[in-house]
Design a protein around this nucleic acid. Structure first.
Lengths: 245, 245
DNA sequence: CGGCGGTTTGATGTGACTCAAAAAGAGTGG
DNA sequence: CCACTCTTTTTGAGTCACATCAAACCGCCG
């Protein structure tokens, strides 16, 4: 299968926006062997327990990293949108405690993790870029722990809506006030550690308070400051500014 | 202040156990300029909102990374024990959304983050080592999200006790069955997203079920399989095996 | 012996869960 | 364009896990 390498360009420019790369480094990246895959909705890109062998860059669609507990409940750890590199860790970690699953039809390109590791050792600038990506992920994981650990139901939901709002805007899928929620309320519930029903009721509260308006999956933030206040949302954890040096 | 560089050796050998380093790389590490600091109990090593400038390696004691919410509640994101490198991210992230605080008297050595970054670009093997460290952290953060998001109170507490048990054993502060819990129950509560009182009652339940025995902060695991079952604990997330390659 | 941080107990309130089912959309085929 | 199904959202009622408040107890240290 031949893959159009230009799909790598958005990620490359995302990395370069943080810190420019040498000619050789970006050329090496663009020369990486690729595979392209498409998934229907609710398919596993990586099954829980499988040993990952390829990192994957999301071109379109939405995926999540999740864990399943013995009692059957699930916890979603993070969502991955277009332009996100998922499972960069693949190369370094032996075991995958969590799976990765699509929430919409999704297309990705994958890169062998050996290639990722070689790139990182041949070009320390790539090593740093991957490290930084991992740090941003870790920062989001931390914030999510705070979210499910210490916020009320309404605040949790508000917080996740604001995260989607910010991230979707950054990739051109929203204007900072309105966006299309790319997942069901049940999935949202698995992300914020609530039952689907209570998640629904929390959304209703936000609606009645006038903070948001929805029809179907279209969300409009009517009162941004109120929503931010409700969620104690501080976008710093998304690291919008890029690395320091 | 002159610092005994031999304090770096444990961390060096921890890294080398995963993957050996070149002579030059380990020499460069050992030559890093260091500062040594001591902290009393409940002191901030890094305040929330401060911009970190130095990574720090814990020599003795226990510290945690925590966030404070507007309503005054706290969530602890992770604990750091002797031999852990904390705030490696310092160099790359502009903003620190969370603080780092001691839970016992603690001694550390710190390394300027410029030096860390230089080491990583001069020796890609160090870049990889730091990246791996960050991946392990991220893996623990994920597991904690699952913990507070989807487990019952008793399971959460059991899970954290098992994590302490495993990690303390690895650094020689436990035999895999008994350990001294280095934090108060109130701190434990902030880590598992419960009230201190309910945390206490959860410990009591574990005690009455015969899974554990305690006197003061001495914990003995009486029925390891039962505790593991209760917590659905799988130590894989601690990445005990080191990286794949 | 007194003070203090930490642990434990008791009583009460409530936020979130569960179960069950209705309503509303969304997609499909006739 | 409508009937039919399937998924998702919404409603209602009852229950339980965990929070909160208040106070007692305990061990440790000066």
């Amino acid at each position: 299968m031949t893959v159009d390498r230009s799909v790598l360009l958005p990620y490359l420019s995302k990395v370069e926006r943080r810190r420019s790369l040498s000619e050789a480094a970006s050329a090496a990246f663009m020369a990486l062997p690729l595979e392209q895959h498409s998934y229907e909705i609710y398919r596993d890109i990586l099954k829980e327990g499988d040993r990952p062998t390829r990192a994957c860059l999301i071109l379109t669609g939405v995926a999540s990293r999740y864990s399943t507990l013995k009692n059957g409940t699930q916890q979603i750890n993070s969502f991955h949108l277009a332009g996100d590199m998922v499972d960069l860790n693949a190369g370094l970690l032996t075991v995958s405690d969590s799976g990765i699953r699509t929430h919409t039809p999704t297309t990705v390109v994958t890169i062998g993790c050996e290639d990722i590791l070689d790139l990182a050792s041949d070009y320390p600038e790539w090593g740093r870029a991957f490290w930084f990506d991992t740090l941003v992920d870790a920062s989001i994981f931390r914030e999510w722990t705070v979210n499910v650990g210490r916020r009320t139901a309404v605040a949790r939901v508000a917080h996740l809506l604001l995260e989607f709002n910010a991230r979707l805007e950054k990739i051109g899928l929203g204007d900072g006030r309105a966006f299309v929620l790319p997942i069901t309320q049940a999935d949202l519930a698995d992300a914020v550690g609530l039952s689907a029903i209570h998640t629904n009721r929390s959304i209703q509260r936000l609606r009645r308070s006038g903070a948001i308006r929805t029809h179907g999956r279209n969300f409009v933030i009517e009162d941004y400051p109120a929503l931010v206040e409700e969620a104690s949302f501080d976008p710093a954890y998304l690291q919008p500014e890029g690395p320091r040096r």
